[in-house]
Design a protein around this nucleic acid. Structure first.
Lengths: 248, 248
DNA sequence: CGGCACTTTGATCGTGGTCAATAAGTGTGG
DNA sequence: CCACACTTATTGACCACGATCAAAGTGCCG
């Protein structure tokens, strides 16, 4: 499978107890899953809740990496800005995803909210200490990091070898997949991205993304409800494109 | 900096003692760096030395992930094969690099030797046990994984936003950088890759790679000694291209 | 209703892909 | 050591996918 949006399917029934994320997307949380009550309380002491409006930065590329974020609600994107102004998005993040975790001293990437978003902001020092005191948590994070690496590699294949149609299909399919993992079923959904956002994620221009979406619509593979509302009709066809089956 | 070949600069003076890698490239080893003698002996007991000829596979995509490899000499590449036969290379690996580490049960990527190569093959079970028993080693691996993620993100930016010239420049610069980190200085070197290999790494055809190399030669930025021998003359110019400064 | 950001669609352009022929290396056996 | 076969690299001619430039069209929020 080729994933262009981050997908980390780690259910977390415990998280709702020590913290106030009951009923929100963060029930599915990569971080908290293996944590007992002790660690969770430690975490709650050095974390706070932050609300972001659309296009607010969570942190900037180049900032000292002082915090780790866990997205609770909404969507965000992680991106790299080049010296000449070009920018490339590395992926989307949703409820339960971890942002801003790095072993470096500075953020190599920036992150910004797409829709409105709520995140849990954790002090980096406390976080490192927590990892050190709880080896199973550290192991869990290694797993998380390995998954993110695998997803980035999928993305790399898409940018290196996929046509425009395959890239857009891969984006749609993996977005739907990420939704489903978080308990939002159904073929109708709202994209939190503009066509330009999608272009930056896929290495395409916004016009090409738009044309490709129109082509899919004409083929009856999807129905558009306004610019952001999408109804996947021909999921099979899109999945086949997204898997890199080529024309055969 | 944009890295298209893996670069993990972790010196390992201890590795030569418990194992027979004295004097070879594996002095620079990501894995062994933080290990004491105890762990090293444990490791030696469940590892063996394997020699590969050019184009030999170290492991195939889809194989059960039974071993972790540490490359000691030579070069290898890690790649993804698509259902329709297209293939994309995720990066190059050199002496000291770790290959085949994954938290999944199967290899999501294949790996093959480019030049001849020597690797240390470690049983996955033993390796997992070692990680569990030595939390500092596990922390080190988390760091390694985070670095590889950062490099893959650099690669992603290159494929998503760079022109052909910028990609080839980025490849050359990061290859030279990897060599230097391993103690091989000097502006003249042999590429272990064919033009086709470079194309698969950069999302280009072999013809485009060849034309771009010729263009660099004509501009006096490099001198070619046979097909694989390269002498970097205008490193500054190539570095500027590789950083994404655009035309300005 | 007006203003603005985003989307769609069209026309044209250009980078890099494709197809093809030649040249340069590389390796093997006589 | 050279002749031959084979792989890899280079270069050219042409093509196509997606980029760029431009102009309507649509939806959204004040």
């Amino acid at each position: 499978m080729v994933a262009l949006t981050t997908v980390r399917p780690l259910l977390d029934p415990a998280c709702g107890q020590a913290d106030d994320c009951t009923g929100c997307e963060a029930r599915i949380v990569g971080l908290c899953a293996p944590m007992g009550h002790g660690p969770l309380e430690e975490l709650a002491a050095s974390s706070d809740r932050v609300v972001f409006s659309p296009r607010d930065p969570l942190f900037h590329q180049g900032d000292p990496a002082r915090h780790v974020f866990i997205l609770r609600e909404g969507a965000a994107r992680v991106l790299r800005l080049l010296p000449d102004g070009r920018q490339a998005a590395m992926g989307l993040r949703f409820g339960g995803d971890v942002l801003g975790f790095t072993t470096a001293s500075e953020h190599g990437l920036g992150a910004e909210a797409l829709s409105g978003a709520v995140a849990c902001r954790i002090d980096r020092r406390s976080f490192d200490g927590l990892l050190r005191r709880h080896p199973d948590l550290e192991r869990h994070f290694l797993d998380l990091c390995a998954r993110e690496l695998a997803e980035t590699q999928d993305h790399l294949v898409a940018l290196g070898r996929f046509t425009a149609e395959e890239r857009v299909a891969a984006f749609l399919v993996s977005f739907v997949h990420a939704r489903e993992l978080r308990g939002f079923g159904g073929p109708v959904f709202e994209l939190p991205t503009t066509r330009a956002d999608m272009g930056e994620l896929l290495g395409l221009t916004l016009e090409t993304v738009s044309r490709t979406m129109s082509a899919f619509r004409r083929r009856g593979w999807l129905r558009l409800h306004g610019a952001h509302g999408v109804e996947l009709v021909g999921r099979k066809a899109l999945e086949s494109l997204a898997e890199g089956n080529g024309t055969d």
